[in-house]
């Protein structure tokens, strides 16, 4: 393991229920992940894959509300200082008013917001609101984003940028591919810190990505781990999985 191996772990409060989702957070924190991406479930998450969409549906069925989500963040704050990035969709941010939502996020100790369907040119004032509140607004890019789109994202002077990489259809699973690699290098040169993910499932992939970004984002892998351990032992299973992804086991 190198010092630069960092993971941003994605969790969904209330998946599969409140207690077990908090167990998952504790497991992740104790395993030593560097960042948390907490996704507030939305009924129609168009930018997510099937595993995360299904988990969000389950969480909503288990009774998740936005108020519960913020209480969940408070509880995390009570035992760790790990930076928390709140990810959700425009509908949840827009409904109470963008400024109100951002203010609330800031009050609950959120380091930054990730809202894929509020890009900088259709942001409803999100970027300004975040700047005013002193929290990061993290633009989301893809490796196929055009230069114009990249420049637009960078014009917000983002401290962090989130990149959803394309999985290659050929080659080994650890191979990032020239397109992805080139994209990360170019973007990183601008000084923004990159969170990057592409459906990471094992430690080799984390290792391959580590030198090219601030942290590798791991999402659906933990969803699967939680699903398998649900009913007992989520803490241990998630901790072990995270340690293995970090190359510590």
């Amino acid at each position: 393991m190198s010092d630069t191996t960092r993971i941003m772990a994605h969790v969904i409060p209330w998946y599969p229920d409140r207690a077990q989702s908090m167990d998952a957070v504790r497991g992740l924190v104790d395993a030593g992940v560097s960042y948390l991406e907490v996704q507030f479930p939305f009924s129609d998450p168009t930018a997510d894959g099937p595993a995360i969409q299904a988990a969000c549906s389950d969480a909503l069925e288990a009774g998740f509300t936005v108020a519960d989500g913020f209480a969940f963040l408070d509880e995390i704050r009570s035992f760790t200082d790990i930076p928390i990035f709140l990810m959700s969709y425009a509908s949840l941010i827009y409904r109470p008013g963008v400024q109100a939502f951002v203010a609330r996020a800031q009050e609950h100790g959120v380091a930054g917001l990730i809202v894929p369907d509020l890009p900088p040119d259709y942001d409803e004032g999100l970027y300004t609101a975040c700047r005013d509140a002193g929290i990061a607004c993290v633009p989301v890019l893809v490796a196929t984003s055009t230069d114009t789109r990249v420049d637009l994202a960078l014009s917000t002077r983002p401290e962090y940028t989130y990149v959803a990489l394309r999985t290659g259809t050929t080659g080994s699973r650890t191979e990032l591919g020239a397109l992805n690699m080139g994209f990360l290098e170019k973007l990183g040169a601008s000084g923004t810190k990159i969170f990057a993910g592409f459906g990471i499932q094992d430690a080799e992939q984390v290792q391959a990505l580590a030198p090219h970004c601030e942290a590798a984002v791991v999402g659906s892998a933990f969803v699967r781990t939680i699903a398998a351990a649900s009913g007992g032992g989520v803490y241990e299973a998630v901790k072990e999985r995270a340690e293995s992804l970090l190359g510590r086991k």
Partner: peptide, 11 residues
């Protein structure tokens, strides 16, 4: 109206 989509759908 508008085009409130994740970046992947922009192009």
């Amino acid at each position: 109206g508008g085009r409130y989509v994740a970046e992947v759908l922009r192009s």
